[in-house]
Design a binder for these strands. Structure first.
Length: 415
RNA sequence: GUGAUUGUAGCUCAGUUGGUUAGAGCGCCUGGUUGUGGUCCAGGAAGUCGCGGGUUCGAGUCCCGUCUUUCACCCCA
């Protein structure tokens, strides 16, 4: 392991071969699928004004209060590294006026949260996410979940689980909070210490408390959804119907809580057993974000790429499967052959062929070993004989056979 | 931020109650006679023992601090 000077910051890591091949597969397939769903790529800056996050994610959320890399720049401006992708995306779309109210964008980008690292949690992590704005129809929520499900399929990920619920409309919030508090009142003394505090600060957190006793109590009282308006419940029902219609399985879980302030109506989460305590590979939901006068409605999701990778590995999908293979290795015997092969390599590469060679005139054995470990399909050998006769010896590494051909015939043979 | 945990060659790890020049496997490099890979054989290179203090005649082994790893809490993807 790299140490001292060579070590990246805590919770951050260098991503390199062979693992990088898995990343590239994930990105390539995501881009391809998003194009099929009519999403355009958006790249926003990693740094934003602090207010962008405070206003959208919520001033009092843990993400903003405890986890952000927020600081003053040299001009005394309050800025922060983005902890998630939605805020910046909406900041961008809001600036595009009417156009931003009818957009489908996706991003693949690093995010930053200054937390203690653990399984599936880094300080710099990466998300692939989408936002579909301006569409108030609950069917958009269902389509968004469908897209996400489709993406997991494209990646070859199995064993994941969708859980869906609703956060209701802003006008429901008070009724839900009051309803839950009243329902919990008779059990007050039995709740854990944390929940004693949560019941006043953030009742919803009592719902997903991991304490066994708290869970027993929560199971006895009505769910948050039961306190919502008919309209909110109908909205969720429509989304669920649509998912069923498309053949997508989703478990309704009224205990699901999403902490960011901007969520309204549908919220969901995709979990995978391979992950440990941080078992969500993706989260999503409908939101309303007001940075200016007008609130922008939208629906979107974000998937944690590191967690996707962990899950993929648990499915037996490895980076090695996506390593570049094949191509040609040029073996040169003697200085002159090296020079000739450098010219040839340039031509081959110009024709789109992957090829490599040793620049030092090492022994043939050494060069063949290199060719083999690089997984070359063919080896072209040139020594004094070949150069004099204007020929090449071309060897098929799979078959082990080789033949001598005229240099001028090379292109015919390669086609 | 709280509580645990880890750190020895590129990688995975040994290293006995503190005692000479710190080891193995894999990988890497070079060979096994004229220009041929995967197997085999031989040889070789490679380590600030995370870092900084301290205890000791002597520290990879003990103590303190620090950084990092992993795990959980909190929260999230």
């Amino acid at each position: 392991m790299a140490s001292g000077e060579f070590q990246p910051l805590q919770g951050m890591s260098d991503i390199y071969a062979p693992e990088i091949y898995l990343w590239r597969m994930i990105e390539a397939r995501a881009r391809d699928l998003f194009a099929r769903y009519g999403y355009e790529e958006l790249r926003t800056p990693s740094l934003e004004k602090l207010s962008v996050f405070k206003r959208s994610i919520g001033d009092t959320t843990d993400v903003v209060q405890k986890e952000m890399y927020a600081f003053e720049d040299r001009g005394g401006r309050e800025i922060a590294l983005r902890p998630e992708g939605t805020a910046g995306t909406i900041r961008h779309l809001a600036g595009r006026g009417a156009e931003g109210l009818n957009a489908r964008v996706f991003y693949i980008a690093p995010m930053f949260r200054c937390e203690r690292p653990q399984a599936g949690r880094k300080r710099q992590f990466h998300q692939v996410g989408v936002e579909d704005t301006g569409e108030p129809n609950p069917l958009a929520d269902a389509e968004c979940i469908a897209l996400q499900q489709h993406l997991l399929e494209e990646w070859g990920l199995t064993g994941s689980n969708i859980q869906i619920s609703t956060r209701g409309m802003p006008s429901d919030r008070q009724a839900v909070a009051d309803g839950l508090r009243n329902a919990l009142q008779p059990y007050l003394g039995e709740l854990c210490d944390d929940c004693q505090r949560r019941i006043n600060e953030n009742v919803l957190r009592v719902i997903d408390c991991k304490n066994e006793m708290c869970q027993k109590i929560v199971d006895r009282i009505p769910s948050a959804v039961d306190f919502m308006s008919d309209e909110s419940r109908q909205y969720l029902e429509t989304v669920i119907q649509s998912l069923e219609n498309m053949g997508i399985k989703a478990d309704v879980n009224p205990k699901l809580v999403r902490g960011l302030d901007y969520y309204v109506h549908t919220v969901w989460e995709i979990t995978h057993d391979a992950l440990g305590a941080q078992n969500a590979i993706a989260g999503g939901g409908r939101y309303e974000i007001a940075l200016g006068k007008k609130a922008i409605p939208g629906v979107g999701f974000a998937m944690g790429m590191e967690r996707v990778i962990t899950s993929l590995e648990a499915c037996g999908i490895t980076a090695g499967q996506f390593a570049p293979k094949g191509g040609i290795w040029l073996v040169s015997l003697g200085e002159e052959a090296v020079a000739e092969n450098m010219k040839l390599a340039r031509e081959l590469r110009g024709k789109g062929i992957r090829c490599s060679m040793e620049l030092e005139a090492k022994s043939m054995k050494a060069q063949m070993r290199k060719a083999d470990s690089a997984g070359a399909e063919k080896v072209i050998i040139r020594g004094e004989d070949e150069i004099e006769k204007q020929t090449l010896t071309i060897k098929d590494m799979g078959q082990g056979t080789q033949e001598e051909i005229q240099l001028s015939n090379l292109w015919k043979i390669l086609d």
